[in-house]
Simulated assay, not measured.
Amino acid sequence: MADESETRTTTDHDEIRRWVEENGGSPASVRGTEKGDDDAGVLRVDFPGGAGEDQLEHVSWDDWFAKFDASDLAFLYQAQRSGGGGSTFFKLVRR
Results as ranks from 00 to 15, higher is better:
T33W: 05
T10L: 10
R44T: 05
D39G: 06
G86M: 07
R94A: 12
G32S: 10
G49D: 01
M1F: 13
G25P: 06
D12Q: 12
D69F: 10
V59T: 04
F65V: 04
F47G: 01
F68G: 02
T11Y: 01
Q78E: 14
E53Y: 12
G24T: 00
F75P: 03
G52F: 06
M1P: 10
K35H: 08
G36A: 09
T88N: 02
V30F: 05
D14F: 10
L92M: 14
F90Q: 02
E15S: 10
T9K: 06
D38I: 08
E22H: 04
L76S: 13
E34Q: 15
Q55Y: 14
R44W: 07
D3V: 13
G25R: 03
D63R: 10
G32P: 09
T7Q: 09
F68S: 02
V93H: 03
S87Q: 02
V30R: 03
F89E: 08
R17P: 04
T11C: 04
D38K: 12
A66D: 14
K35V: 08
S5K: 10
G86L: 09
D37K: 14
G41E: 01
G52Q: 06
A2T: 10
V93K: 07
H58Y: 05
R31T: 15
R18V: 09
R17Q: 14
